[in-house]
C-alpha cells in the first residue's frame, strides 16, 4: 500500500516537472526567434544572454529590410512569400480536385482494379522524396519545366496527394453508404452524389486536409532547392531564407525576422484547424 502511494506521489511530481521542461523546450526556440528578430544585431553580439530585452531596445528596422525588394537595399522577402503562396495554393487546389473524387470512389465503389489502386497508394506513401527527386529533377529539366513554378507545383502534388488521400479516405469510410444508395434510387449519378451530399458532409475534413497540404507545400525545401536555385526571382520562402543564410554579410537578426515571417502564416492556419487536423492525421490509429 505504501508502495502505491509513494509511486503515485512520485509520478505526480515527475509528471509536472516533465511537462514544464518539455513545454520550455518546445516553446523557447520560437520565443527566441521572435525576440531576436526585434533586437539590433549589436545587442545580440554584445549581450547574448539578454532574453527579455528592454522596450526601447526593440526595433522593426530588421523587418523593413527583410521585406523590401533588392532594388531598395532589402532582401526581397515579400516576393518569396508571394511565390510560396502561389505555389502552395495551386498545389493544394489541384490536390483537392484530384483527391476528393478518387477518395470517394475508393471508399464506396467497386470497379475493376479498385483494390490494386488502394494498395498503390499505400506503397506510394512509403516512397521517400529523395528517391523520386533525381528523375523528377532530370525529367522536368528535359521537359523545360525544371526552373519554373509550374514544375514545382506539379512536383508538390507528389508530396501532398498520398497523405491527402489517406486522410480523406479514413473520413469518408465513416459516412454511411445508405445515404448514397438512397440518392441513387432517386436517380442521382455518383458525381452528383459526391458534389451535393458527400462534399458538404465532409467539409471539415476537406478543409483540414487542404490546409495540411498547404503546409507541406509552403514548408517544402528539397524540390525548391533542386528546381529553382538558379532563378532568384522564383525563390520560395524556404529557399530564399537558405540563400540569405549562405550570404556572409547577412546578420542573424535578419534570418530570425525571415523565420518569423515564414512561420507566422503556418501557425495562424494551424490554429484554425488544430483539432480537425489531429483527428484527420490519426484516423485509424486506434484500430492499429
Amino acid at each position: 500500500m505504501t508502495m502505491i502511494s509513494f509511486q503515485t506521489t512520485l509520478f505526480r511530481v515527475l509528471k509536472w516537472v516533465f511537462l514544464a521542461l518539455l513545454a520550455l523546450t518546445v516553446i523557447f526556440p520560437f520565443y527566441y526567434m521572435v525576440v531576436m528578430s526585434f533586437v539590433p544585431i549589436q545587442d545580440l553580439l554584445r549581450e547574448p544572454l539578454t532574453l527579455v530585452p528592454e522596450i526601447q531596445q526593440l526595433t522593426v528596422e530588421t523587418y523593413r529590410q527583410v521585406v523590401a525588394p533588392e532594388s531598395e537595399g532589402g532582401f526581397g522577402f515579400a516576393r518569396f512569400m508571394r511565390n510560396s503562396a502561389v505555389v502552395a495554393t495551386a498545389a493544394t487546389l489541384l490536390t483537392m480536385v484530384l483527391a476528393i473524387p478518387a477518395s470517394y470512389a475508393m471508399t464506396r465503389m467497386r470497379f475493376a482494379g479498385s483494390k490494386k489502386i488502394g494498395a498503390l497508394f499505400i506503397a506510394v506513401y512509403m516512397f521517400p522524396q529523395i528517391i523520386i527527386a533525381v528523375p523528377v529533377f532530370v525529367g522536368f529539366q528535359i521537359l523545360g519545366l525544371g526552373t519554373s513554378l509550374v514544375g514545382l507545383t506539379i512536383a508538390y502534388i507528389a508530396l501532398t496527394v498520398p497523405v491527402s488521400v489517406h486522410m480523406l479516405r479514413s473520413y469518408l469510410r465513416g459516412i454511411p453508404e445508405s445515404i448514397d444508395e438512397a440518392a441513387m434510387i432517386d436517380g442521382a449519378t455518383r458525381w452528383q452524389i459526391m458534389r451535393k451530399i458527400t462534399v458538404p458532409l465532409a467539409m471539415p475534413t476537406i478543409i483540414s486536409t487542404a490546409l495540411y497540404s498547404f503546409m507541406i507545400a509552403w514548408n517544402e525545401f528539397l524540390f525548391a532547392l533542386l528546381f529553382l536555385s538558379a532563378k532568384p526571382e522564383l525563390w520560395t520562402v524556404s529557399l530564399g531564407l537558405t540563400r540569405l543564410a549562405d550570404g556572409q554579410e547577412v546578420s542573424r537578426t535578419i534570418l530570425m525576422a525571415g523565420s518569423v515571417l515564414i512561420t507566422a502564416p503556418i501557425i495562424l492556419l494551424y490554429g484554425l484547424v488544430e483539432r480537425w487536423l489531429t483527428e484527420g492525421l490519426t484516423a485509424g490509429a486506434e484500430k492499429g
Binding site: 484530384l98 473524387p101 478518387a102 465503389m109 470497379f111 489502386i117 523520386i132 528523375p135 512536383a155 507528389a158
Partner: peptide, 24 residues
Amino acid sequence: AGWSMVGPLVAIVTMVIVIPILWT
C-alpha cells in the same frame, strides 16, 4: 464512374511518382 473519379489522380501519381521510380 469509378475510373473517371480515380483516373486523373492515378495518371498524375504515375507521372510524378511511379515513372520516376522506374526511371531511377
